[in-house]
């Protein structure tokens, strides 16, 4: 039998997603926060592909493709933002970027 229950993939995906979310929250380095976001994307993609396989339908993979494109665009803009912020503030500590508070 070459099958693995869907649930395993879903749990794996959920764990990776949650780790990504925790990463966003506990890390102060925006670069790592971005990486965590990528991890969360990745977890979602995993479910897409798994369902695509389970239903014998290629549409899920198309979505993964789109997610990758959007992620690439997001990373490009996000990193550019980080560079710009670093230029003006000479730090990328996310906790120091709280001028909008209160």
């Amino acid at each position: 039998m070459n099958t693995i229950p869907m649930s395993y993939y879903l749990v794996l995906s959920a764990v990776m997603f949650t780790l990504g979310a925790i990463g966003v929250i506990i890390r102060r380095n925006p670069l790592v926060m971005f990486m965590s976001l990528e991890l969360m994307f990745n977890a979602a993609n995993l479910t897409f592909v798994a369902f695509s396989n389970a239903f014998g339908n290629a549409n899920g993979q198309i979505f993964v493709f789109f997610v990758m494109v959007v992620a690439a665009a997001e990373v490009a803009v996000g990193l550019a933002l980080i560079v710009a912020i670093f230029r003006t503030r000479h730090s990328i500590d996310i906790d120091l970027m709280n001028t909008l508070k209160n």
Partner: peptide
């Protein structure tokens, strides 16, 4: 409740989580 808006993105993310 102003304390909640501390400008820290991470806190906001925590609340979402």
């Amino acid at each position: 409740i102003g304390v909640l808006q501390n400008g820290l993105v991470r806190s906001y993310a925590l609340v979402i989580l």
